[in-house]
């Protein structure tokens, strides 16, 4: 009898835990979105921030976040693909491979602030660039590489072995087999993982404080050179991203509506992250279906 009661009690408690977690997520999202809802207008999304007066927006920060994401992925994706291919297709069972595995493990458990500090030493000070978008992108590459390598490796390992055999049996070289047969078949997995990694890049702040910096020059959006000091596209300029902005406004905001700005910025960030997450979900499913069925 006692056992029966225990069983019931445990079921109830575990159910309560599940409800609590779901409730927390809904509460979080609800809170952030209701707090920031009134700020979600075009003016807030496009105008520059104001340090001391009310009415500032997050335009440059939003742009910086997106641009940094693109830069990071341009660097990190090829490296992640290459290393993932190595781990899935070439890595022999030896010390070198073990060492790489351990490196991946270490990198993925490094606190992002430590990655940021490493970036400060190497990509900011040693290179002499100062705080730049590019330094930030390199730090975020270090931060995301282990995830991308793992995603690629898993996706490649999930490709049926028969695909590889079919290609090799046709006298196709191993490298071309990887590039033309295995990678396309692994694409859904890689894409899903990449989008999730993008979400992480978009929301990351600690690794950027001391690499991309905590301020932006007054961007001149009519200028599109890669080198002008106020050109938005110049990768060698400092850039405060949306996530960094939220942190800064919350900890040292001076403008009277700092709290308001933080509300709006948090809502924008959370919406962006939700979009990344949901699109990873359906995009992966969609492309997989497209590749494996007759729909064309």
């Amino acid at each position: 009898m006692r056992a029966k009661i225990m069983d019931r009690a445990a079921t109830i408690i575990l159910t309560l835990i599940a409800v609590l977690i779901i409730g927390t997520l809904l509460g979080l999202l609800g809170f952030i979105l209701t707090q920031g809802w009134h700020k979600l207008n075009l003016d807030f999304l496009t105008s520059p921030p104001d340090i001391v007066k009310a009415g500032g927006g997050i335009g440059p920060q939003l742009f910086n976040s997106l641009y940094l994401l693109v830069l990071t992925m341009l660097i990190a994706l090829p490296l992640g693909l290459g290393a993932g291919i190595y781990m899935a297709e070439y890595a022999p069972d030896n010390k070198f491979t073990q060492f790489i595995r351990m490196s991946i493990e270490v990198l993925s458990s490094l606190p992002s602030i430590v990655v940021g500090l490493f970036g400060l030493l190497v990509f900011v000070n040693m290179t002499g660039w100062g705080y730049t978008l590019f330094s930030g992108a390199l730090a975020l590459t270090v931060f995301n590489l282990p995830l991308l390598v793992r995603v690629t490796e898993d996706a490649i390992r999930n490709v049926p072995r028969s695909q590889k055999e079919a290609s090799l049996a046709l006298g196709i070289t191993k490298w071309r087999t990887i590039v033309s047969v295995i990678l396309p078949a692994a694409l859904p997995g890689i894409l899903t993982g990449t989008i999730l990694a993008s979400g992480r890049v978009f929301g990351e702040a600690a690794a950027l404080l001391f690499t991309a910096g905590m301020s932006s020059p007054d961007l001149d959006f009519s200028q599109f050179s890669l080198s002008g000091p106020t050109s938005p596209l110049n990768p060698f300029r400092p850039a405060e991203t949306l996530a960094v902005h939220i942190w800064k406004v919350n900890s040292e905001g001076l403008a009277p509506d700092a709290r308001d700005v933080a509300d709006g910025a948090a809502a924008v960030l959370i919406i962006a992250v939700l979009l990344f997450n949901l699109s990873a979900r359906w995009f992966g499913a969609w492309i997989y279906k497209k590749m494996t069925s007759g729909a064309n």
Binding site: P160, Q163, E165, A166, A169, L170, G171, M291
Partner: peptide, 21 residues
């Protein structure tokens, strides 16, 4: 080995078309 496999084709137990057209 690539040349060898051009001379000797192989078909497997389970059909394994590429995920292509």
């Amino acid at each position: 080995i690539e040349g060898l496999r051009q001379v000797i084709g192989m078909v497997f137990q389970r059909a394994n078309p590429f995920f292509k057209s």
